[in-house]
Design a protein around this nucleic acid. Structure first.
Lengths: 335, 335
DNA sequence: GACGCGCCTGTAAACGTTTTCAGTCAGGCA
DNA sequence: TGCCTGACTGAAAACGTTTACAGGCGCGTC
């Protein structure tokens, strides 16, 4: 049924070794023979079998990507960065999402054994140390947004703390003194760092902190909507809301509008991530810009290098800087 | 370096066949022997090599997914549907995005040969017939949003025409007579069908059609923004805008706001897809709901069945229905 | 006591490649 | 003529599995 290298060899009247040599340019072959083989190969539509190739070369040309159950544009942008970089180097991308706990991640690793040359793991919820611990040392891994210590692994993080700190100071600079925060899951590392940045900026400036100004959320628009409504009902009402990601900020915007509040006249709103849709909000959303697709690109480049050097290279820990993007959703406090 | 089945066999003092039998429950093995082997296997952290397994079983337990350069939530939702369904059946997902022309798609197919048990192909831009023509008949394929005729392949389409037609009639029902349309690429099948639905609904109701009311776009927020601005400047100004997808509708909303127009008082806006963020717009966006993740789920289920039956099953062509979701971005025409 | 039949186990082939090694052949040189 | 070299080619091993086949052993039956 399937056409193999043997079929090509037989049809061309040569041995499989010669066919292989022609197809990979891996040895001298007579001009006439080469042409004949090339002809037969394309006529028969021969394509080498990936499995057999991987088996012999110990290379799959595939990268595994383990992601949590991300939603929306963040996911899409990360994958875009990863895939385009991988593709440029002739690699495929095997994705696997929605891994809640350590066991699930380990199962995913096992299932991918021998199908993948390395992994990009994004797991902000879980102790990465434990995950990666029982991975064979020969298997390259790049940790994305993971909480991990030491210099044993390649890792790439967003400057969550710095970004949140800067945004909070920006709001304070606009004269806001009652600033609410919509948080993500406590156990999410990104979320925790952003919360820490918010708190520390308030402390640095000697502003009041109230528990009721910190609302729980889970990075979805729905949770932002809920939190936004609650904040609108607070008294005294905060004059600014900083959401730990854009999706929640968008949800909050929607809730504020329903509550009859104008943004930014009555209350300011800021987000985090600067997803593409942020600038098209009404009003356009002030946010902490993260180069999301670059996150994927960098992680992939690092991983490809690790694969190339068989994981013998010196590991590096990077932090991707963030920048403030000022749009119209935040105004000077006039209350 | 890597621990193979042979290592386990040696350590346990049995043959590889016996180990294989234990690990796959594929034959009778003495109780004592079985225990010993299981013990050794877990102590050595043995995991079968995927490549070798695929080679011998002719199964990769992996599905290939070829997508165009989708952006935003649509991509993310489709993948979510595909991956969750695949994962439930023990399959992995190999994604590959950004395929512009036939050659690129073919190259992707070739590269995946032997790494994948079947393909989900989404390619609204290109004649699918040509793509799939020179694929071996034994390779299962499900076509997603592809233009294709006949019953030779499994295919799954959105009811683009019906959805667009219904939305246009809805706008007409609200009293709008000058309805603008922001289109997608001409060569995009989805876009073309949505445009056709818009046109035919206007014709059915005997409404005027003007070339200047049909603005080009490319499914991005930026193009919707541009088109929205142009439409706002038209005179007489249309009283409603129907965008061929939500991203463009969101862009248009933003442009209208900048032009000082109120939605829906001055002008109504409708989108298509009903991406999750649509309901959180200001105002919440009326849209044609498409069960995006279900699109991925269904395609995957069909593909898995095709794999199961070695592509000998009867192919089916499905169309996913759409529903109108009425929110506040469209109002009765009061001009 | 011979035979057949289960159960358990091992040997070896097969999957489709790459690659090492050895071989053939022509031609140049002594 | 004999030898060496270099270009070309083929045979066979190797990768890590599964599986068809066969063998050994204990036990029951005639």
């Amino acid at each position: 049924m399937k056409v193999t290298i043997r079929d090509v060899a037989r049809e061309a009247g040569v041995s499989v070794a010669t066919v292989s040599r022609v197809l990979n340019d891996s040895g001298p072959v007579g001009d006439e023979t080469r042409k004949r083989i090339l002809g037969v190969a394309s006529r028969l539509r021969y394509t080498p079998d990936g499995a057999a190739l991987s088996l012999i070369t110990r290379r799959t040309n595939t990268l595994g990507v383990l992601l949590p159950d991300l939603h929306g544009e963040f996911f899409s942008e990360v994958i875009r960065g990863i895939d385009s970089t991988a593709q440029r180097s002739g690699y495929h991308v095997l994705v696997s999402r929605s891994h809640r706990d350590k066991d699930e991640i380990e199962a995913a690793f096992r299932a991918m054994r021998g199908r993948v040359d390395g992994h990009v793991v994004m797991s902000p919820e879980i102790d990465a140390q434990a995950i990666v611990a029982n991975l064979p040392a020969s298997c390259p891994v790049v940790l994305l947004n993971c909480v991990i210590e030491g210099t044993e692994f390649d890792s790439l993080n967003i400057d969550n703390f710095g970004g949140a700190h800067a945004m909070t100071r920006h709001l304070i600079g606009l004269g806001h003194e009652r600033i609410a925060f919509i948080a993500g899951h406590e156990r999410n590392h990104d979320a925790a760092e952003r919360l820490r940045g918010y708190r520390e900026a308030l402390m640095d400036e000697g502003l009041e902190q109230r528990a009721e100004w910190e609302r729980p959320g889970d990075f979805t628009e729905a949770s932002g909507f809920r939190a936004g409504g609650e904040i609108a009902a607070l008294s005294p009402r905060p004059t600014a809301i900083f959401a730990a990601n854009d999706s929640m900020a968008i949800g909050a915007l929607s809730a504020l509008r329903e509550a009859g509040l104008r943004v930014p006249e009555d209350i300011s709103v800021a987000g985090f991530d600067d997803i593409p849709v942020a600038r098209y909000m009404s009003p356009p959303l002030t946010s902490v810009h993260v180069a999301i697709s670059e996150l994927g690109e960098r992680a992939t480049r690092t991983l490809l290098q690790a694969v190339e050097e068989k994981n013998q290279h010196v590991k590096c820990q990077e932090t991707l800087p963030t920048t403030l993007v000022i749009r119209q959703s935040c105004g000077r406090n006039i209350h």
